[in-house]
Every structure is written in structure tokens, then in C-alpha cells.
Design a protein around this nucleic acid. Sequence first.
DNA 1: TCGCGTAAGTGAACAACATTAACGAAGCGG
DNA 2: CCGCTTCGTTAATGTTGTTCACTTACGCGA
Lengths: 248, 248
Amino acid sequence: MLFTYAIPTIVYRVPDVNPVLRRRDRVRAATQSELTSAARELLVTGGTEAVTVRSIASALGMTAPAIYRYFDSREALLDALIDALYDELAAELISVRDAAGSLAGRFLETSRAFRRWALAHRAEFGLLFGAPIPGVGELGDASADRGQRFGALWLELFIELAARDREVVRWRRPIPDRLRAQVTDYVESIGGVVDTDTALLFLACWERLYGAVCTEVFGHLAFALDDAEELFEDQLLDVAERLGIGPP
Amino acid sequence: MLFTYAIPTIVYRVPDVNPVLRRRDRVRAATQSELTSAARELLVTGGTEAVTVRSIASALGMTAPAIYRYFDSREALLDALIDALYDELAAELISVRDAAGSLAGRFLETSRAFRRWALAHRAEFGLLFGAPIPGVGELGDASADRGQRFGALWLELFIELAARDREVVRWRRPIPDRLRAQVTDYVESIGGVVDTDTALLFLACWERLYGAVCTEVFGHLAFALDDAEELFEDQLLDVAERLGIGPP
DNA sequence: TCGCGTAAGTGAACAACATTAACGAAGCGG
DNA sequence: CCGCTTCGTTAATGTTGTTCACTTACGCGA
């Protein structure tokens, strides 16, 4: 199955395995996938420290140097894992989104699913969205692209929102020139598929939602709360209100 | 100089070096401090990977095993660094806060100073507030204590706010029972120096502010913005509005 | 179906890592 | 001044990522 979206230039594509590959290439791809899965397992059970090349290899019953037939380095393997995790998360959000009926429901459920995934996969979330480890998931084309594609997943919702109600999109404070200029540049960089006001609203809301999830997952509410679900829900309702989405 | 606060049970104390130490203990403490500083320097220039026991030692002109006269392990050293960084950040915020005049100014400037410090010290921020690395800065007493003490720095402002205007503190939505219970427990755990409503407001605002800083510092707005200062400012003004703090 | 090329996997090796043990050289307190 | 504690060293251990040289065996083209 191949998911695509209305936005022409910034489509998040959950890649499918191409079946017209030679057998050799297919088993090779399967091994690569098994390796990243093993790495993930180690990450989840033992943290970043535990995901060593030797452990990954022995999980597949082979020795460490064999890994280098499949990945240039440990970091390249982790990079592939990051890609796979982005795909998994995106697929999850997309399926939740498409199962929801109304536009409001799609926004709320996607947001909740994001938090749910993050909490259910803390270690993976740390890898994707935590403090950038120098070298792995670095700010190359791949990294910027991931951000773009993942952002697009939400951006689409804001495009719909803006199409439905222009009033919602209007900023309530004067927009500083530099901020406006930056957002305009961003809009241009994604092919002008959205107007500046909508993009700005999207960025502000993304900052709130991601920030809330980040705070909770990284344990910086743990000094007070065991479970911050209802606090997140409150933040989410704030955002929804701002977006003109009433309680369903 | 010793900073103390009105809150009796949760005082953030920026510790001073006790001068009534024997000479030996003084040079020992100085060496420990030099070691954490060297570790910090390595962290800043080369990331977590670069902060090896050997490098730290050679920065002070000694060999790796000598480190173990001062710290039980590499992790213990990093833990001490984390403590020092918390103290530095807290001292910075306190000095900024105490330089501001009004209550509104204290809140706004403290928040801005938090963001400023985070951006000026990205690597350090990642160590303090990023994805928890298993083993270092672990959820022991020390970690919980750090969270408490650091939170108290802001909590104090909310206590003042609540004292000035009870209306501001009132929640705009029905508070879910479980959330209320958790916050009540938290309030109790810090000695009941604040009421539940105020504590809840504090937690919600802390989530927003920390979340915004986290998002920016970890580069998850970089796909769109080079500098998110004005976006942060907008979020901050939102919060300030919620707190009944008009533009100064 | 047969052979050959290429890819997969191995063991040995290396440098760098955290850490421990055993030992020498100071320096301070009595 | 003696003796003990503390500091720092060298040597050594086990583990890390990674490379090299080599062998095995699979799959593709004929």
C-alpha cells in the first residue's frame, strides 16, 4: 500500500517493498530490516549504550564484521533505524487520521496518537526527537527531509482548516517582520502550497504539541505527575479552541 | 553568596564553597571542578561521544586512571557536571529575575533567560533536559530533587501571582479527578506551600515554556525557521496573557 | 544444468574505550 | 621525623567499532 496526499511537492510516502527485485537483493533487504529491528530491540531493552554492533550481529546469529556488508557503520545502521521509525510513526498517524471522521476528529486523534506512540516507545522517540547525537541523524539532506515530510503530515490538516475558515488563521498579534520573512521563505521552500498565515499557525501549534509530548516523555513533569495525559488533553483542547475546533 | 527563597521546604540553594576546609580538601574540590569543566568543554566541542575519561584526564595533564581518585566512574563525573550546570542555570535565572522590577517582568525575563541559556548552551541543555541517558542523571533521589528544586524556581513566581490575583489561577475547564488527585499529591509532597489550583497552573505553563524551548533547541523547528525567537515570544505572550500579565 | 563471479560470513587484528590492580611519590598530622 | 593517607603512574583486562584477508556458497548467465 502506498499512502499519498493532496500536497503535491511534500508528499509523505510510506515506502513499499518493491517486489521486482532479484532474489539476492530481496534477502539482502530483509537482512537489513532484521538488523535494524534487532538494534531497536536492544535500544528498547537496554538504552543507546546497549545497541552495540556485536550485540546486533549476534541477535541474528552472526559476527560483528558481517554487519559491514549491510551498513557502512554503526551510525548508518542507526540512521536506517531512524528512517524506519519515522515510517512506522507516520503510518500509525495516517491510519489513525484516516479512521477519524470530521476534520476536528482528524486533528485531535492525530495529536493524541502522536503522544500515545511517543509514550509507548520512549526510547525510539528519544532517538527520533531527542537531543541530536552528533553524527547520527545529522542535519544532512536526509534529516531536513524527514522533518519536512513529517511536518507535512500535520500541515495538511492546517491547509484544510484554513480552507474551511479563513478567520481562524488570522494572527492575533502583529507578526514581527523577521518571523514573517522566515515563514514566507519556508512556504516558498515547500513549493508555496500554503499561505504564510496558515504556515505560521501550523508552526506555532506544532511547537505546542511537540513541546508537550517532549516534556512528558523526557520525564520533566515526573517530579509532579505520574501520568500527564489529562494535562496534555488540556493543552490539546486549548489548541483546538484556537483552531476553532469545538469539542466533538 | 547564598540565595534563599520564601518557600520553606523547597529552597533552591546555589551552594557556596565552604572556606573552612583543610587545604587538601580544597585542592581536591578544585580538581574535581576542573575535571567537570574539562568534560563540559569536550561536550561542547565534540558532543557526548567526545567526552571520554582519557580526554578529560589529559586536559588536566594527567592519565585516565587518576580520574578515579575523584569520581567513581565516568557517569558519576557526568552527574557532577549536571549538578554544576543546574546550579549555573539556576544562578543565571535568579540573577535575571532579581534584576527585573515588576512581577510581570520577573516572569517574562526569567522565561526569556531560560531560552537564552538553552540556546547559548545547546549541548549542556541536551544533557540536562534531553532524552534521559540510562545510568547518568538517572531517576534517583538526586534527579527528582533537581527537578523539584529547579521547578521551585518558577513555582515561586506562581505563588506570587496567585497571591496577587486569585481569579487568574482558576481553571477554565473542569479539572479531571485523576489530574486533581495527582496535583494534590504533588502539593503535599512539597509541604503544601501552594494550593492545588496554583500548582496546576504552574505545571501547565512549565509544560508550555519548557516544551517551546525544547522544540527549538533540539532543532525540530529548523525545517522551517532559522531563528524561532519571535515564535517563542509569541508563546510567552500567550502564557503571560493567561496569567493576567499585560505587556509591560 | 554447469561453472564462475560476487556476495556473505568468518577469525584475527588494531586502536580506543572504561575500569581495576599494584606500586611509587609526595604531603600533611601527630 | 615518622607514618599514613592521598595522588598519580604504569600495566593489564575486557569490550567497543572497524578493517583485512580469507573461505564458503549462492544465484545468475550460458
